[in-house]
């Protein structure tokens, strides 16, 4: 039986000064699932995200992607190794068009350099055409093809979130890490986002999700982990986790 594990995180710790943002967090994400990470504000969810996408280096512990140790590598290496992300506060390239944003996401899957750019030789032309076609396809996939030529900053909020997902998908990830994709969305936007995420999963991409919208998390994810004060306090199927007394205490405050 092939190994079903895609990402294994082992005893990762990270502190900022005296604050322990993560303490010995271990979890493993299986291929093809939607795995959610929940917890109160300040629980360390985004810190864990930043560790596995290379923005922070873990103080101790390690994580492996399909058996390859990636801990402490640069963010660009993570993207090349198949981990793509979106940001909690949208970080698009504001003054580029939607299409250019997605084309930029193809950077690590293409290779023309200066010489190719100047002489526009055959390889370079084919690659540029391919880049543009794939980018257009992804805009279509997330449903904002009609805004391809708009500047990213002029898109509506929901469309900006979608564009971030398209840009992340352009790096051809195995694991798509989404940091609060539904934040600030209304009901119908959240519903269509749910449809999009299910479609991404059915196309074989594993999703790691941080989300505060419990209804969305419980309906969507296959498994989830709960973080509180930098520690993992529960992990499992949505039904089991939501009845876990530790989780209820973390969310509602214990006596």
């Amino acid at each position: 039986m092939p190994d079903a594990r895609l990402l294994e995180i082992e005893n990762v710790s990270k502190h900022f000064g005296g604050i322990l943002a993560l303490t010995d967090v271990s979890l493993s994400i299986e291929k093809g699932e939607i795995y959610a990470l929940i917890g109160p504000n300040g629980a360390g969810k985004t810190t864990l995200f930043n560790v596995i996408t290379g923005i922070y280096k873990p103080d101790s512990g390690s994580f492996r992607m399909e058996g390859i140790d990636l801990s402490g590598k640069k963010p660009s290496m993570m993207a090349k190794s198949g981990i793509a992300r979106t940001f909690q506060n949208i970080r698009l390239f504001s003054n580029m068009t939607a299409l250019e944003n997605v084309m930029t996401g193809r950077h690590c899957r293409s290779k023309s350099g200066i010489i190719g750019a100047i002489f526009r030789n055959g390889n370079n032309r084919t690659e540029e055409i391919e880049t543009e076609e794939k980018a257009m396809h992804l805009l279509d996939y997330v449903g904002i093809r009609k805004h391809a030529d708009m500047l990213a900053k002029n898109l509506s909020y929901g469309d900006q979130r979608r564009l971030e997902i398209a840009r992340a998908l352009a790096t051809e990830p195995k694991l798509l890490a989404l940091d609060e994709p539904a934040a600030g969305m209304n009901h119908s936007e959240t519903d269509s986002l749910k449809g999009l995420l299910e479609r991404i999963r059915s196309d074989g991409i594993t999703i790691l999700l941080i989300e505060h919208d419990m209804k969305l998390v419980m309906n969507l994810c296959d498994r989830l982990a709960v973080l509180d004060f930098g520690k993992k306090i529960a992990e499992g199927k949505p039904g089991d986790v939501s009845s876990n007394p530790l989780v209820i205490e973390a969310y509602l405050g214990g006596s």
């Binding site: 698009l92 390239f93 930029t104 193809r106 950077h107």
Partner: peptide
Amino acid sequence: RLQHSRIGRAWIAIREDEIAAEAMGI
């Protein structure tokens, strides 16, 4: 030629948001 190329887009992406550019594999 450089502006409308893979490298040119990467430059502009860095100008716009360096962290996002790095996270996108640049």
